[in-house]
Design a protein around this nucleic acid. Structure first.
Lengths: 256, 256
DNA sequence: TGTATAAACTGGTATATACCAGATGTGTTT
DNA sequence: AAACACATCTGGTATATACCAGTTTATACA
């Protein structure tokens, strides 16, 4: 039924593993433009026929491209060429939404959940408020080109922004805060790290639960230095790149 | 020879895949401290015996933990519990080396390569210098706790820093530039992205070539705004987290 | 024309097996 | 005590097979 292959596929000791060679060929096709953004890639089974390898080897080639970020996978539909990365300037906190729209990125925002809750220990410390003080929280899913790119959950001090949840959250919240609550983002502290995706996140982002994401946390402060917003974003790692502009402060005295 | 198992291991339809369950158990052992930093994990083969699954299933569990960053693997020696992340504040460009040492991180620097070359198109544009102008480049491998954590390649305008390569590069180069060349980092532009590792990088960082890394690029400017250093770092993604302090500049006129 | 059904895909999970090459440990010989 | 050889450990690569559960498409039926 199956074609005959040498027992362990190690016919030529060409040093580089077979699956790497196959991945390289596909990578080339993406580079030359033979495969374009969101184009479907050959399936595991068709790859295995095409290159006369087992399905598992074809799969490994595709998985390699997936961890590289060149390819994304949609459960049981196939694998596709990843689009260009979205650029996110974390220093320009004015609004990711407005800057993205100015850059002609088609951005769609889906409100996943809105809740009125109270501050736990962590949030209380962040906001310099007592534990149990009212907090507004909302989770939104951001799409670009019809594909989910990141989940954002933001926490606000409720007393400061009464009736906030009645606004349409499918727009820049920074803008709502600025125009309706006279609160402007002035400084922010941001943390970026790479980590494994959690099950619920994977579902929302429609990626497999063995994938890696980029987690971005930020505390936003007003002109008086008072923190009023805590944001938490989970990005599909291959979909974005983050930039920042740093200014060396306190350049004065003997800092080692 | 092998124990009898049901044909496809789908004995109970407990919804969650077997390899996820095994990964969860190990994750628990790490969380409770039963497995500590740099402790060796059970091997693929011993896992398969312990849980009565095939080696491939045990492997998938370990690979899942690896992509999460909880575990790192040393080729053909075994898999180990990842240490705590290193914290890198990209806004504080004064020197990663000095801040890390102040934080009691034992940092070892290995000089991989030093070359005197000329500017290609990209570097010329960055430095606002003609193509072909002399450039100093050096690559260093940073270790912490005896483990490689990132590779850094820095490019300097050669004319500005004569004899730079005669200094001992196993220290903070920012400090050399400051004390010996009266050049101080004042501002910087940083880009952070996640991507697949390249073969040569994987070798230096001793990770498998199917892994994901974090790439960090920065252009450093002096007080006059003249760019004098271009840095390029490749981090083991699970080993670090990056923070930044942002100040919203140009808060003045009608910026949308 | 629309809808239900079935067939033909897709990747996901799982088993079993085989051999390779590097790393490590255990002796034995020099 | 150092050198060598060997067995045994590790993960890495590869094949073959099987069944599952969604997605898509073609087909037949109302």
């Amino acid at each position: 039924m199956d074609k005959q292959r040498s027992k362990d596929g190690r016919g030529d000791p060409s040093s580089r593993p077979r699956f790497v060679q196959i991945a390289d060929e596909i990578r080339g096709q993406i580079a030359t433009g033979a495969l374009k953004e969101h184009d479907i890639l050959p399936s595991e089974r068709s790859l295995s026929e095409q290159y006369d390898v087992s399905r598992m080897t074809g799969r490994r080639a595709l998985e390699a491209l997936e961890t590289e970020g060149l390819v994304y996978s949609a459960d049981r539909r196939g694998r596709f060429v990843s689009p260009q990365r979205l650029k996110y300037n974390v220093s320009n906190m004015v609004s990711f939404v407005s800057t993205a729209q100015a850059d002609d990125v088609d951005l769609k925002i889906e409100v996943v959940e809105t809740v009125e809750t109270v501050a736990d220990g962590k949030l209380a410390a962040l906001f310099e408020q007592p534990v149990g003080s009212p907090i507004i929280a909302y989770t939104r899913l951001f799409h670009s080109g019809g594909h989910p790119i990141f989940i954002e959950t933001e926490y606000l001090v409720a007393d400061r922004f009464p009736g906030f949840l009645h606004y349409d959250l499918r727009q820049s919240t920074t803008q709502i805060l600025e125009s309706s609550f006279a609160t402007t983002a002035s400084t922010g502290d941001i943390v970026i790290r790479m980590r494994g995706v959690k099950t619920d996140e994977a579902q929302l982002l429609s990626i497999s639960n063995t994938h890696t994401v980029i987690e971005l946390e930020q505390v936003i402060r007003d002109e008086a230095g008072v923190p009023f917003c805590f944001g938490h974003q989970v990005w599909r790692g291959e979909m974005a790149e983050f930039s920042a502009h740093a200014i060396v402060a306190g350049r004065s005295v003997g800092k080692v």
